[in-house]
Design a protein around this nucleic acid. Structure first.
Lengths: 201, 201
DNA sequence: CGATTCCGATGACATATGTCACCGGCCCCC
DNA sequence: GGGGGCCGGTGACATATGTCATCGGAATCG
């Protein structure tokens, strides 16, 4: 019996997945959470073979939850689900040590197969996603540029960004300007959008 | 037997919902689609009692699909599902003539009950959503302000907005400034975000 | 070692954006 | 007819944003 913890913030999809997985003879959902941090403590408590994590969860997202899970319960395999399969995210997820990666365009029956694979310590990455990730341009942005773009996405002003990052305003403007050049964007907001779409932030 | 057409662009949730609804004795999913326009033609073809539509679907969203469905097959009842329950959206959905409205924080078993209600021509609106909609402030923005905010969301510059709307730049800045005041935002981007969150655009 | 390259950082400068006061025209409604 | 609100518009002004030249330090490479 493969024991599983499921975390997804959307009730409808989580309950649906759980009900359908429960019908599989060899799978057992031992706990479910609607956020990342609860998922982490549930995994610690239940020590399941596999934890299934949604990527988009406030406040702790799937990758962060996976990182915490794997550092404290290294025997558990993590599978990440995502709605928008942005290329760069896969790279970060792999770096975090996840074993499986599926888009939400997968059917639940297929998901069950993936969970079995992963429980048997086989890696699984959705082929289309993998292809995208291989074709994806490496992120041309520096860490600081990414910092500034992340904050730009929250509608912070340059001044606020500078304070948060402990930099001079001019410096921040430089990073943003450079990021805009690299992403061929006309404004820092557009650049942040591009970086997000690409999965760089 | 209640016959249903289901439309949702996310495979995982759609297949999950369909499988679970199929287990109910009195419900039958006769067709499913992953976009709004397919949903419309499937409804025309199958004439189901109920059509279950996701709100967020590219390119034709749920409200638009519902409008088209109800004008061509008026006997069909439409139920809308949404991930982010923005208050203003409910108003627009009701105006489009939908009979049921549920957030995706609903469980599938609850959804089945709603579908039965709706098939019996009873309206159903998620209580929390309804409360939000009643408490929601009416949109304080003028049409022109909304135009400018819509374009702001595409990261257009003030100049580009002015060209698109055939206005002077100063005028556009005025609308945006006024919108920012009304939404208590610090920038036009933040104002556009607020308007979006509120379901005003 | 020296040359080169890249990142982080700064300040000066030009442009874009937001604020304010104000105007005339139009429409609706008391 | 006289308000009041929305619309389109202008100009002046303050501030925010984006561009550029430049610098120091760390890493890389010949």
């Amino acid at each position: 019996m493969i024991r599983i913890v499921v975390a997804d913030d959307e009730e409808m999809i989580r309950t649906a997945i759980v009900s359908l997985l429960a019908m599989e003879d060899d799978l057992e959902v031992v706990a479910q959470a609607d956020n990342g941090s609860d998922a982490v403590s549930l995994v610690r408590q239940h020590q399941p073979e596999v934890v299934l994590l949604d990527l988009e969860m406030p406040p702790t997202d799937g990758i962060e939850a996976a990182t915490q899970v794997l550092s404290s319960v290294p025997d558990t395999r993590a599978v990440l689900m995502t709605r928008h399969a942005r290329p760069g995210v896969l790279r970060r997820a792999m770096a975090a040590g996840i074993t499986g990666f599926v888009p939400k365009s997968t059917s639940v029956s297929r998901l069950a197969e993936v969970l079995r694979d992963v429980a048997a310590s086989r890696r699984y990455v959705d082929p289309e996603l993998a292809a995208q990730a291989l074709n994806a341009d490496a992120c041309p942005l520096t860490d600081r540029e990414l910092d500034a773009l992340r904050l730009t996405r929250t509608h912070a002003s340059v001044q606020q960004i500078a304070e948060t990052l402990h930099l001079a305003e001019g410096t921040v403007r430089n990073y943003l300007s450079s990021a805009m050049a690299k992403t061929q964007s006309e404004s820092r907001h557009a650049a942040a959008e591009v970086a997000w779409q690409q999965g760089w932030i």
